[in-house]
């Protein structure tokens, strides 16, 4: 027997088991979500969910949070990644270390720190009213998305030879800000969109931060429905899975697009 000779039989067996484990819950959830009415299949659970005004509100709120998080992270991370590549290479490993921290620090720890550090009696009372708590939640999501967004943007910068591009633009008389906005940013479209969809996938169903900051996001809504209903959660799970699939589809589409440019 040759080393690493393909073993199709074993491979198909493993694939079959995996396919079962991963598709049975999905199929079961779809069927369950369609069986709310006793006399046959119906979209009743979906109808109830989609006509629930608090679902619409929660969905809209989380979507707005996701968009805010993408915008803020882009504004923070693109210049940082560009600057450390160009002007502060010594800082690069520190910036990379910082962007890895959110993977090390569980989100519940992060929000615990927010609640204690920014409570209404503190020097920066961000949790004292709803608007500023919304902002704090966005900042939290920026932090959660940071490892992924930094990595995609840095990969984009690596692929495009930042130094030469910058020097070319400088030789034509452009200043740093101009270069960043007119030269670098357009080249990073793919990377940013790529990271944006990953951020969207992370933020939409996020529970811990939204719940502990007590904001009306999709995560706490889902939890509430799950605790009180039977069929609607299955419909919501199907919707959430489709949404994740949609985000990851775009994520992969844009990763390929970036390589194509």
């Amino acid at each position: 027997m040759a080393p690493l000779k393909p073993q199709p039989l074993a491979a198909w067996a493993i694939f079959g088991i995996a396919a079962g484990f991963f598709t049975i819950p999905l199929i079961a959830t779809v069927i369950f979500s369609l069986s709310m009415k006793r006399n046959g299949w119906s979209f009743e659970a979906y109808r109830i969910v989609l006509s629930d005004s608090s679902f619409i509100a929660a969905f809209g709120y989380s979507l707005a949070q996701a968009i805010a998080a993408v915008l803020i992270s882009t504004l923070l991370i693109v210049p940082a990644a560009y600057w450390v590549r160009l002007y502060l290479p010594a800082m690069k490993q520190w910036v990379e270390f910082i962007t890895l921290l959110p993977l090390v620090i569980p989100s519940i720890i992060l929000v615990f720190g927010y609640l204690r550090l920014y409570n209404s009696a503190s020097w920066l009372p961000l949790t004292s009213n709803a608007r500023s708590t919304d902002a704090l939640l966005s900042f939290g999501y920026v932090t959660l998305a940071m490892p992924y967004l930094y990595r995609t943007i840095d990969a984009g910068l690596r692929a495009m030879d930042v130094r030469t591009l910058t020097e070319a633009a400088q030789s034509l008389g452009a200043g740093p800000l101009n270069i960043l906005i007119r030269v670098i940013l357009p080249c990073l479209r793919g990377s940013i969109l790529n990271g944006a969809f990953l951020t969207l996938a992370i933020v939409m169903g996020e529970f811990t931060l939204a719940s502990l900051l007590d904001r009306p996001a999709l995560g706490p809504y889902l939890q509430l429905i799950g605790a009180n209903r039977a069929y609607e959660p299955a419909a919501l799970a199907v919707i959430a899975f489709s949404l994740t699939w949609f985000c990851m589809g775009f994520f992969q589409y844009f990763s390929n697009w970036r390589r194509g440019v």
């Binding site: 819950p25 959830t29 369950f32 169903g205 799970a237």
Partner: peptide
């Protein structure tokens, strides 16, 4: 949460 829902269902 959606994952929990899927397994509950």
């Amino acid at each position: 949460i959606p994952l929990a829902f899927a397994f509950l269902a």
